[in-house]
Simulated assay, not measured.
Amino acid sequence: MNMITSLEQAILPLNSTMQDAINALNISTLKIVLIINEQHQLVGVITDGDIRRAILAYHGLNSAVDLIMSHKPVTAFQGDSASKIKHLLEVNKLLHIPILTQDQRILGIETRDHLFGVGKLTNPVFIMAGGFGTRLRPLTSSCPKPLLKVGRKPILENIIESFSSFGFEQFYISVHYKADMIKDYFGDGSTLGVDIEYIEEKTPLGTGGALSLLPDVFEPVILMNGDLLTKVDFSELLAYHQEEKAAVTMCVREYEFQVPYGVIQSENNRVTNIVEKPVEKYFVNAGIYVISPEVIHKLKVNEYLDMPDLINACLANEERISMFPIHEYWLDIGRMSDFERAQSDAINFF
């Protein structure tokens, strides 16, 4: 796809909806949506992070883009030097910047990748692959769950290849149950073009406790359960975490269920309203986190700690915990029905 086509796909009129913006972000390679008025002037931009924050604010897919866009985006102008545009990208920690004429019409988009070159990400990825997979027995009686095949590849190989496609190349895999099978299959990761080291839990330490076994880290770490499949953009997740200046960023999914009865609202013993079969919505943990190095440095080595306890400790210290809602494909392969669904999904997604 050439730049002109991608730019055209990234431009939407002001009367568009959030669903239109999501579609444009998925189609265009530029990872930004430009909103224009009837005079074809730029009036706002929408990034992946804006979509996530809109979901957290319970904006519906039919919400107007005017409600979720950034109304005062950083821009450059025709004739600005490359060094000036680089400075704007660096100072504002941007991935892209619109280039405008003096009357605010769009000429193009300059990107960090184009000006600085596409580089590998040095942030470590920590994958939890030590569980017993008891709910998938008998499949896991002789094979660890991360090595069960979805389509033609093991679950864990799909995960590593997904991260690699976004520029991640340093992996730590926590192993316990049938650890040698996982190590024998992936080795040092060279066959996949990545570097893999293994963290061996002599006894299960919980997700938070396993983090304490990592060597010194100085950048945010992405932590993920080794039985998940998703099409989330991990580079956008990392950028969101840094933008939020969070100690921990949790990926979440919107979960809804319908109460099968009429729900009574009341004050004391007086009925104030009755709602017939209401739909309740919650954000639930999606098993993917970004953790700042300062949090990891505080952990006690080899001490059992679950992620809820780690997050609650951060909250007690008044550290910022952010949510990153996933609207892309996501599947937790926890039960046999999930594994069967993954096989059919593999045709379309993997």
Rank of each mutant, 00 (worst) to 15 (best):
F168T: 00
E256W: 04
D184C: 04
P308R: 10
Y329M: 14
E294G: 10
G79M: 13
Q39T: 06
M250S: 10
D188W: 07
L205W: 02
I68L: 11
L205K: 02
D20W: 05
Y240E: 02
M224T: 08
T29F: 12
S212M: 07
L228H: 00
P73T: 08
L88Q: 15
R341I: 09
L14H: 12
I22A: 02
R52C: 05
D227H: 06
K31F: 03
T101S: 11
F350A: 07
L95Y: 14
L156I: 02
E267Q: 09
R137N: 10
F166Q: 08
K183D: 05
R253W: 06
P154T: 04
I264P: 01
F116C: 09
N2Q: 09
D48E: 15
N92L: 02
L148S: 00
L315S: 02
D309A: 03
L30K: 11
L14G: 01
A179Q: 13
K298W: 12
Y261K: 10
K281D: 07
L89M: 12
K281S: 14
L121Y: 13
F257V: 05
L30M: 11
T75R: 10
S322L: 07
H87E: 15
L237D: 02
P325H: 09
V271A: 12
S344F: 12
I109F: 03
E38G: 06
N317Y: 11
F116Q: 13
F324T: 04
H96K: 15
K300Y: 03
Q78A: 09
N2A: 02
F350L: 15
S322G: 10
V217L: 08
H176E: 11
A286Y: 00
V45K: 01
M18P: 00
G49P: 09
L229V: 05
K281I: 04
H241R: 05
L331T: 03
N62Q: 14
P146K: 08
M250K: 12
Y255R: 13
P13F: 06
L299F: 07
P154K: 01
T272M: 15
Q242D: 08
V118A: 07
N348I: 10
S337E: 15
A10N: 05
M3F: 10
R253K: 15
C251E: 04
K202V: 06
L107M: 15
D113F: 06
E256P: 00
N123C: 00
E169L: 08
C143N: 11
G208E: 00
E276L: 14
E38F: 07
V248W: 02
K84R: 11
N2G: 14
L42S: 05
F126K: 01
P144F: 04
H241I: 03
R135K: 11
M307G: 00
Y172L: 07
G209C: 00
K145Y: 08
N269K: 07
D184I: 05
L88T: 06
D20H: 13
N285F: 14
S337Q: 08
N62F: 03
R105E: 13
S164V: 05
W330S: 00
Q19P: 05
V217A: 08
N23Q: 09
A82R: 13
K84G: 03
V232N: 09
D345V: 01
H114G: 10
S266Q: 09
R112I: 09
Q19N: 15
Q104A: 08
M224I: 14
R152D: 13
D20N: 13
Y255H: 13
E303Q: 15
S292E: 15
